[in-house]
Nucleic acid binder design. Structure first.
Lengths: 259, 259
DNA sequence: AAGTGGTCTAGACCACGTT
DNA sequence: ACGTGGTCTAGACCACTTT
């Protein structure tokens, strides 16, 4: 006997406070999203079945399906029939600007890759660095400062100066950053980050030219990136690519181009 | 009397050919999307109401709503209660890299803007240009070639070398490109484009240094962009920004960050 | 006041992929 | 074969916005 429609709120009493402004799927989506972004549900985590989740949240399966479908479209979840729903592995920088995984970039060129760490220190942020990192009140004053070189086929490929927030990645303090470069390690350790890039052309100074084995004054591409996760700054990177060799490639479409 | 569910295909007989692989909303979404991207439904066009569209396509309102909601999320449509659904004005380069509208960029800095056209010609593509443009078989051999300068507060801001496909924008041949720069004009004329960017650092040569009023050898940021719409190449641009002054800003998040 | 999109549901069938 | 997500519907109430 199909009840003749008693309205969407039949089982949910009106909330006392007027906080109730968002829809069910918006509320549930925010909850699930937060569990993923916060790491409570790490990549690979298997979610309860759609039916169970719907029951847990007290909504119909259609509503729950809407949430999961949207998060799947957004790339946070991977859904496969019979297998169920799992948290996705973070895409490398939305596949739109592949400057995060330099090792993959170099190997994609068919070249052998290496990374060497030049310096490593735990030190306070300079005022300039603090202005760029914008640390929160409970972030420590000291940061792990690394300088390293990415190599491609024995030639310097990219100079990297990096600061890491120990509060965001405590294990970084005991990490050697040997064969695995800091960027790749961080991507595993703190997935689901947001990044702000600033890209400039600069003339190589004496020090930079020596490190990159190029002539002083040669044009270099400099990328500064601030990365945060759940509002907390994770890392601050300066990457400098020598000369005219390197180019960034980015594709954009107005649609988001899912199909 | 609510019929006890007769299945989704009750009114649609199975197609004879096994072409039927996609869902209803996927099929309808593709149709609507194509009407927008092809220009049949230009920006500002008012769509029929959700109910009518559902009837037209022979689906329930929920299914039609799903399509329209998705396209609205993707930024192709704008929906407002009571007003209806209209085709959105194309966002400036997905708001992710604001290098399309240089005028807006300059004015955003609080500076007066000007554009001056240096040369203009209708000529065949060079082999290099053709390789970059990848013209189709029915594209004309000749392209409109423009060179111009963007000015900010009386100083050169960006050198622009542009090729325009007359087949994609016929009105370009009679356009003066006076106060309005070619990029802004094209965005109006051919909305909904896809662009591939390549970004490099180069040392300014003698000619470039003279035009941009900088010292020879100074590092410049060069952006090459190929734009296409519905598979056809629309324009090919080289933009060169002088020195260390200019920086590109781009924000990325793995989620798409709709909220 | 009226009209349009926004949301929600219960139930049903379908299809894919593992078993 | 079975289980899970994928899709679809008819009907209903809600809420925003313009008239």
């Amino acid at each position: 006997m199909p009840l003749p429609a008693q309205g969407r709120n039949s089982r949910r009493p009106a909330l006392t406070s007027p906080t109730r402004r968002q829809s069910q799927h918006a509320r549930i989506r925010a909850i699930v999203k937060d569990r993923i972004l916060s790491g409570a549900w790490p990549p690979g985590f298997q979610l309860p079945f759609e039916t169970d989740l719907a029951a847990d949240f007290g909504v119909s399966r259609m509503t729950m399906n809407k949430v999961l479908t949207e998060l799947s479209r957004a790339g946070l979840l991977v859904r496969r029939r019979k297998l169920g729903t799992v948290v996705a592995a973070p895409r490398v920088q939305a596949a739109v600007m592949e400057i995060t995984d330099i090792e993959a970039e170099v190997r994609g060129l068919g070249l052998p890759y290496d990374f060497s760490l030049l310096t490593r220190a735990l030190r306070p942020l300079t005022p300039e660095e603090a202005a760029a990192a914008r640390p929160g009140p409970d972030d420590p004053a000291d940061a792990l400062a690394l300088i390293g070189l990415h190599w491609a086929a024995g030639a310097p490929f990219c100079l990297e100066q990096r600061l890491i927030n120990p509060a965001a990645a405590p294990l970084a303090l005991t990490q050697t950053f040997g064969p695995e470069n800091p960027g790749a390690w961080l991507l595993r350790e703190v997935p689901w980050t947001t990044a702000l890039h600033r890209i400039r052309a600069i003339n190589a100074g004496a020090d930079l030219a020596r490190l990159l084995q190029i002539a002083p004054g040669e044009a270099c591409l400099e990328i500064r990136r601030r990365t945060e996760s759940s509002g907390r700054w994770v890392t601050l990177v300066h990457q400098t690519y020598p000369g005219t060799q390197h180019q960034l490639v980015a594709r954009f479409s107005p649609t988001g181009d899912h199909a």
